[in-house]
């Protein structure tokens, strides 16, 4: 992979910045150059709240290369409040207690270390939404 590759995705990875389509008004994540709904260009950056709920989930015991040290870990499709689905790991949760529909929120975590340089890739994961005291 490489440093530049992760660096140029920093605003979406660290802050869940996507886009809102100026034409159809839909919110888009991850960001693109062309709206997948109306095919118009020119979107405006949109900061997602990070709140959503679990659409589906599974736990990985046979990880791809680079993720061995984290296994087993749980991945999910999270339905964001603003509409889009996002693929991410779940964190701070017992896999036995995860359920479809469960409210979750985005947190920033270490995703992996890459290559002999040990570049640490940070990005979004989701955890069960904390209840107000």
């Amino acid at each position: 992979m490489g440093i530049a590759r992760d660096w140029r995705l920093r605003s979406q990875r660290y802050a869940l910045v996507g886009e809102i389509c100026d034409d159809c008004g839909r919110k888009i994540f991850p960001p693109r150059d062309v709206c997948p709904y109306c095919a118009e260009e020119a979107q405006t950056p949109f900061h997602f709240s990070g709140r959503g709920e679990i659409y589906s989930h599974t736990t990985i015991y046979n990880p791809p290369a680079g993720f061995e040290e984290f296994a087993p870990y749980t991945v999910a499709l999270v339905k964001l409040e603003e509409g889009p689905l996002v693929t991410a790991q779940l964190t701070d949760v017992d896999p036995q207690e995860i359920a479809i529909g469960q409210p979750v929120e985005m947190v920033t975590r270490k995703i992996r270390e890459e290559g002999p340089e040990g570049l640490i890739v940070y990005g979004y994961k989701f955890r069960p939404r904390l209840q107000a005291a």
Partner: peptide
């Protein structure tokens, strides 16, 4: 950039589909 970076495997993508389908 948006699936495999999170450690997703091919089986896992199908598992996400299957669980939602069953639900």
């Amino acid at each position: 950039d948006h699936e495999t970076v999170h450690g997703i495997s091919f089986v896992a993508l199908n598992a996400l589909l299957m669980r939602r389908y069953m639900y």
